[in-house]
């Protein structure tokens, strides 16, 4: 057997893989997530239409209902919106933006939160007190309010055309900053535990730099819970993004995310064109549900007490 095959076998037999294979919910969630992520990533290739190519848009195709209803056509499986854009394609493209913003925001949150948590827990003292008080203060505001605040500041600070260009990045920053506290608190707690363990003391006796101890010794031992938080946070971040876009302060309509699509559809909901809001909404629900289930499974699988 080659070394690669051996490693593969070990990974397959690992507790986590075992628990995954034996959890139908996890399998279902993984399949759903894969479908969503795959659809989003491959949107330019698998989407039947390019909704952002104005050359192919035909306004007279607007408000086409889904294919199975009376006046629908097979050309537009899930119907079209007011401008004649194919709903299926816009959803695929929209999921791409939703997922991208969600993942980037989570990454930003995690890096920020983990760094602050490590510093806070390991160095302690006034720095710790300061970071944790800031965290407490931030926690007394709803996350969406923090994100709105940051977005608002960016709108005032940046010239409009620049803001439209940077809208996605501002969104990532806003959602990212609103979510770091959870990471910082968790990592600080685990760091305090690890810091008291003798392997960290051994590294100190050897004379390692505190930063090296934090990164090489403590960090690898506190990542388990971070992974769980991050997975569940992806779902929250996608919802936050959708909420902001629904409120109209998220991404511009030229690059609609799922939230933007729901907002657009919302205008036509009462006039009978229900599919424009419903299908992006459903996509959002499925995506968030799948990621959440995956996160729940991961939390249970990594918790030795529940095994």
């Amino acid at each position: 057997m080659t070394a690669g095959a051996g490693r593969l076998r070990r990974a397959w037999n690992h507790d986590l893989a075992w628990s995954f294979r034996h959890s139908p919910v996890a399998l279902l969630a993984a399949v759903l997530t894969l479908v969503c992520v795959g659809g989003a990533l491959l949107a330019p290739w698998i989407a039947p239409h390019n909704p952002f190519d104005s050359a192919t848009l035909n306004l007279s195709d607007g408000f086409t209902p889904p294919a199975w209803s009376g006046s629908g056509t097979a050309k537009y499986l899930l119907g079209t919106d007011d401008q004649g854009r194919d709903m299926l394609s816009t959803i695929l493209y929209g999921a791409r933006i939703s997922l991208g913003v969600g993942l980037a925001a989570v990454l930003f949150s995690a890096v920020l939160g983990v760094s602050l948590g490590l510093l806070s827990g390991y160095l302690g003292g006034h720095l710790d007190a300061f970071i944790m008080r800031v965290a407490d203060i931030q926690l007394s505001f709803p996350a969406i309010l923090i994100a709105l605040l940051i977005d608002g500041v960016a709108r005032v600070a940046l010239p409009p055309e620049l803001h439209d260009q940077l809208a996605v990045y501002v969104l990532v920053l806003a959602i990212g900053v609103s979510g770091w506290v959870q990471y910082a608190r968790t990592v600080r707690g685990s760091t305090l535990v690890e810091k008291g363990k003798e392997y960290v003391q051994a590294a100190r006796v050897i004379g390692r730099h505190p930063l090296a101890i934090m990164l090489r010794h403590v960090l690898p031992n506190v990542t388990g819970p971070v992974l769980v938080i991050a997975t569940i946070h992806v779902a929250t971040a996608i919802i936050t993004e959708a909420t902001l876009s629904f409120l109209g302060v998220g991404v511009p309509p030229t690059q609609p995310s799922l939230g933007t699509l729901v907002r657009i559809g919302n205008n036509f909901l009462l006039s009978g064109e229900w599919w424009i809001a419903l299908f992006p909404g459903l996509a959002l629900v499925v995506l968030v549900l799948a990621v959440n289930l995956l996160g729940d499974w991961l939390r249970d699988a990594l918790n030795p007490k529940l095994r």
Partner: peptide, 15 residues
């Protein structure tokens, strides 16, 4: 100078 610790389960980095 170096040190040997009490708990062999905590004194080695598990990772």
């Amino acid at each position: 100078m170096q040190m040997i610790f009490q708990d062999p389960y905590a004194s080695l980095n598990p990772r």
